[in-house]
Design a protein around this nucleic acid. Sequence first.
DNA 1: GTTAGCATGTAAGGAGTTACATGATTTT
DNA 2: AAAATCATGTAACTCCTTACATGCTAAC
Lengths: 200, 200
Amino acid sequence: MARRAETIELAVLGLLHEGPMHGYELRKRLNLMLGWGRVLSYGSLYPALKKMLRGALIEESLSTRTPGTPVSKRPRITYQVTEAGTREFERLMSEVGPTAWEDDNFDIRFAFFSSTDMEIRLRVLEGRRTRLQERLDRIQRELAMTQQEVDRYAGELQRHGVDRVEREVMWLSDLINAERNSASTAASPSISPTPTPEQA
Amino acid sequence: MARRAETIELAVLGLLHEGPMHGYELRKRLNLMLGWGRVLSYGSLYPALKKMLRGALIEESLSTRTPGTPVSKRPRITYQVTEAGTREFERLMSEVGPTAWEDDNFDIRFAFFSSTDMEIRLRVLEGRRTRLQERLDRIQRELAMTQQEVDRYAGELQRHGVDRVEREVMWLSDLINAERNSASTAASPSISPTPTPEQA
DNA sequence: GTTAGCATGTAAGGAGTTACATGATTTT
DNA sequence: AAAATCATGTAACTCCTTACATGCTAAC
């Protein structure tokens, strides 16, 4: 399955919110954004874009970069979100449930967290944390069941894996606390002059 | 692509080295071993086993668990490695090159490190480390190129990702040092009574 | 007795990578 | 002038997951 079409779609919609972009650029941004390892290929991106065009989530427009030379150069195709696309993006972002906290899905959603309100953010963060916690519990349980002594390297890999997940849980906890704090400080008129959710 | 058939093959061969096993058990062990997230499905495992049977890397034999009731119960199919399978396993394990240090491949190889000699181990560990370092460099470079200020959450995700990779690099460095130390202590007649590479 | 877990498969379909094909533009 | 990178695609192929199908065995 790997990335589940919907994920690319969400990412594209999110990126196009920053402004119109063409395919090549989208690919670069996407790879930088979720490119921990695998890179997104053209054979994956362009068909996805076509599909989104058919679904009217995005529109294309031809742009000639330099106004000096009018015809000869192949125009680049620039994509922009339609209104339907914006609505779809909002719908996907406010989705709370298993699909929101699966590995790849979570990352994308997180990257665009600024576009949702805190309530959703908290729910997704907590859902993700619970998910990981369950993973840890399951592994600990299964490990306890295994009588046989583990191989040195297999054991090391195991430990490292658990470590990584535990670390991610801590990261999430910090983020959850930060959200909660920002909520309480926003309620009381304290330091920050503009308590809008959009501020960097 | 996800897991690249060869990876499952290597994992199966490695596990069967511990002794004969049937499919269900293999799946469980596999999921515990590389189950950080995705689980291996039957639809993936059984076809792979069939393919390995055709390639004569493994053999199947029917086993009735309890000797009391002879016929009626469906016998479980137990797989074991053939000689050709052992050779293939050794060939795959001593492969040094890009395929050895890709994410999934690396994990499997590492889990069975006890079956190779230190020279290979070191080369794979170092290859992996270099790979990750390159990843970090590429990202840092691309990040530096990006003029525009990054979104708060996108930035946080970025940082967390870099952190994770850096941590893995440290982990690898520790392992590399450990290998080197064990090499030098094995050379001088110091503490450990049995300086064989196989000890736990 | 019935639920949960053991055990073995197959078929359909989705998803995306690789490789191919093509050409413009910029940098060296 | 060559090399690199920008830029847009398509087709074949591989791989895997999901869902289906079936039946045994142990525990509650």
